[in-house]
């Protein structure tokens, strides 16, 4: 089964045609489905009997977000301007992590849409994989973040178990933090949609001002400096250090140039 033409014509990834004012309402929800390691491997290899699992689950999640009002009795029908559903295969915890992002410029919040997208994407993953693993568990479906509207920004407080196990790479020895006062600043750059959402192109910080000399510490600092910190929580946000793409947490050195940006779309 292939759904490529849906992607090509934008069905899988709804077009955001709203202007990008800060009054927009956004919500990010997440969840995960835990399975046998062998099931996850079949999924990763594309060997599931029902075909392309992730593409199907993504479409299901997007469709579900659009139909939330039909499922939840007191929910309004919304004109969503953007829905994305992303998956992360976590081999260490043998689960698929699902996250959904919804945005609109309407008069009511979008957290129900994001939660519905995650739930239905998880159910679809179950359906697509149940032939090989009936014991899968859908867990931790929850709101991560919402913004816009009267209640303003709400952010889930980080707790140790919310940290994805594979994004925490070992950090190099950081004991030598003495005398950072005269070190060169770290330059931070933002590109494309992220730059527009943050409303800034560049930031600069002295290493001593970070809670830890790591990418994680730097990101924390950036979030404390900007009006739209949730923009840095996009699941597919990419990062480059000194012009090389990096993954996970790494040590950041004085004088480094760190860039954050959305997935690339050249060619």
């Amino acid at each position: 089964m292939t759904l490529t033409h849906l992607n090509e014509r934008g069905e899988a990834s709804m077009v955001d045609v709203s202007d990008k004012q800060s009054s927009h309402r956004e919500a990010v929800a997440s969840g995960r489905i835990v399975m046998q390691p062998e099931t996850l491997k079949l999924l990763a290899d594309g060997s599931m009997p029902k075909g392309d699992v992730l593409t199907t689950a993504r479409i299901a999640g997007i469709q579900a977000a659009k139909r939330t009002h039909e499922l939840i009795p007191l929910c309004h029908a919304l004109m969503l301007s953007k829905v994305t559903v992303d998956f992360e295969l976590d081999t260490a915890a043998h689960c698929v992590r699902v996250s959904a992002f919804c945005r609109l410029g309407g008069r009511t919040g979008v957290e129900m849409e994001a939660l519905t997208a995650v739930s239905v994407a998880c159910l679809t993953l179950y359906d697509m994989c149940k032939a090989v693993d009936r014991g899968m568990e859908i867990m931790d479906v929850r709101l991560e973040h919402k913004s816009g509207g009267q209640s303003g920004v709400w952010e889930r407080k980080a707790s140790p178990e919310t940290v994805s196990s594979d994004t925490v790479a070992p950090v190099a020895d950081t004991t030598d933090l003495s005398d950072k006062s005269n070190e060169s600043p770290i330059e931070i750059r933002f590109f494309a949609e992220l730059r527009e959402r943050l409303g800034i192109e560049k930031l600069s910080v002295l290493p001593g001002h970070l809670s830890s000399p790591t990418l994680r510490g730097l990101k924390e600092w950036v979030k404390s400096q900007v009006d739209a910190p949730q923009a840095l929580d996009q699941p597919r946000l990419l990062c480059a250090v000194n012009h090389d793409m990096v993954q996970g947490d790494i040590t950041i050195n004085p004088g480094d140039e760190v860039a954050f940006f959305p997935p690339v779309t050249g060619g």
Binding site: N7, A12, V17, R58, A192, T265
Partner: peptide
């Protein structure tokens, strides 16, 4: 860019 506004292109699964 379209008649009804502009948007950033999303990455493609394909």
């Amino acid at each position: 860019h379209t008649q009804s506004g502009a948007y950033w292109v999303s990455e493609r699964e394909s």
